[in-house]
């Protein structure tokens, strides 16, 4: 019961995300037929994750800073892959309970260069979109696992 019934704007983001994500899932399936090896599953997991983030960001469109940052990161991910992985692991391990806004900056994509109020604004929108994403992905998983 997390999502609200919102005006048509939000609904359309939801619809667009669902279309794009289903389409990219299908493409992934077409390219990569079933294989049971662990490595293959891991690769698929990465691709699905990237696909979900990318479809969310492109569903939101370029008017939000975080979606722009996500798309940019995905486009240039070959350059930044190792760097991102390292910093992410580091951030996850060393986090303590301290309401440091810099942690939030690391979590929200593109949040490094914003001033604080804008960061909060983007965070609110990002949370809404992440919720939608999680809900739809849950539904897809439920549908597939039945």
């Amino acid at each position: 019961m997390t999502t609200l019934i919102m005006p048509s704007n939000h609904n359309s983001i939801k619809t667009r995300f669902t279309y794009r994500f289903a389409r990219s899932l299908k493409k992934l399936n077409k390219n990569r037929p079933a294989s049971q090896s662990m490595k293959e599953t891991y690769r698929r997991y990465h691709m699905i994750r990237v696909a979900s983030y990318a479809s969310m960001a492109s569903a939101v469109g370029p008017k939000r800073a975080w979606s722009r940052a996500v798309l940019w990161k995905i486009r240039n991910r070959t350059l930044h892959r190792t760097l991102m992985k390292k910093s992410r692991i580091h951030a996850l391990r060393t986090r303590k309970v301290s309401g440091n806004p810099n942690d939030l900056r690391k979590l929200v994509p593109g949040g490094e260069g914003m001033d604080f109020s804008r960061l909060l604004n983007e965070t609110a929108h990002y949370i809404k979109c992440l919720r939608t994403q999680v809900q739809i992905m849950k539904n897809i998983v439920d549908h597939c696992s039945n």
Partner: peptide
């Protein structure tokens, strides 16, 4: 969830 989707 994407892990789950990959393993499905």
């Amino acid at each position: 969830l994407s892990m789950k989707l990959a393993s499905v």
